[in-house]
């Protein structure tokens, strides 16, 4: 009966994952390998193709005020415009992760301050994990899989923009080698969110209890669906250490951007998350 409960939990989290996240690993891999009936993604590999593809790099629901803000601002440079679009999509993704978190059984019963803390500290880690399936060693899908941006192009941007994605590529190549599927990913994301060691948590015990249940579900699922992958559960959990370093480095780069780019403005939601993070 206990394993039936764990399987039901895994199924529930997988359904939430499909409901809240627009681009699954299965779909992303199909696009990247060309095994989809949809048209191939538009490739951005230089400034010319970036300018051509720019209209496509909009968030799904580009709000009018967002457009106005972009028009009114004095962001002439293509890097800044591009990273402005990335920020809009990231803010949208934060709201998707929030909905996913709320669907984890027991999450909304936690102290509201602790819910805020878990999301504040967990959400960038979750986003880094979620971008991994969109990447291969040569580039990454963006804009819901409509665009493929090459790794070389991202590396060619001026400093510090060129330094933002390379660590994520290095991590993604290692993470993708574990070959998790979307249902494994759903459980792993829930484990990350339910980390009881985030700074400032008020009531750790119920969070750890929830995480332990999800960890059991993840362990059971990995054993059943990847029987030949030795120590996969341990290998997946080890990735959580890399994630913390990636987030620390990412926040430092954003800090650097704020200091060096006069026209840089950080999305208010991302500001909230990154302020006093580490």
């Amino acid at each position: 009966p206990e394993s039936a409960d764990l399987r039901a939990l895994a199924r529930h989290l997988y359904e939430s994952y499909l409901k809240y996240f627009p681009l699954t690993k299965a779909k992303a891999r199909a696009i990247l390998s060309g095994k989809t009936s949809d048209s191939a993604p538009f490739v951005i590999h230089d400034m010319k193709s970036l300018l051509e593809g720019e209209q496509m790099i909009n968030s799904r629901q580009m709000p009018a005020q967002e457009l106005r803000r972009a028009e009114m601002s004095v962001m002439h440079e293509v890097e800044l415009r591009f990273f402005h679009s990335c920020q809009s999509r990231s803010a949208e993704a934060v709201s998707e992760v929030t909905e996913f978190a709320k669907s984890i059984p027991g999450f909304v019963s936690l102290d509201l301050n602790d819910q805020v803390t878990l999301l504040k500290y967990g959400v960038i880690e979750v986003l880094i994990i979620m971008i991994a399936p969109l990447m291969n060693k040569d580039g990454t899908l963006i804009s819901y899989g409509q665009i493929f941006m090459t790794r070389e192009f991202l590396k060619s941007l001026r400093k510090p923009f060129c330094e933002m994605m390379e660590p994520k590529f290095e991590f993604s190549v290692r993470f993708n080698a574990l070959e998790l599927d979307d249902s494994d990913m759903a459980l792993f994301l829930a484990v990350i969110i339910l980390s009881g060691d985030r700074p400032g948590l008020l009531n750790v015990k119920p969070i750890e209890d929830l995480q332990e249940t999800v960890l059991h579900a993840l362990e059971l699922q990995l054993k059943t669906s990847h029987p030949d992958s030795l120590q996969l559960f341990a290998k997946v959990l080890q990735k959580m250490t890399d994630l913390r370093q990636l987030v620390t480095d990412h926040v430092q780069l954003i800090q650097l951007l704020k200091e060096t780019e006069v026209d840089w403005c950080l999305h208010p939601l991302l500001q909230e998350i990154m302020r006093d993070l580490y």
Binding site: P63, L112, N113, V116, L119, E272, I273
Partner: peptide
């Protein structure tokens, strides 16, 4: 904490309706 994280707080409190970000 809630004061410093108003948007996050609002996302947590609202139902799944689209939130004006």
């Amino acid at each position: 904490l809630k004061e410093k994280h108003k948007i996050l707080h609002r996302l947590l409190q609202n139902s799944s309706s689209p939130v004006d970000l």
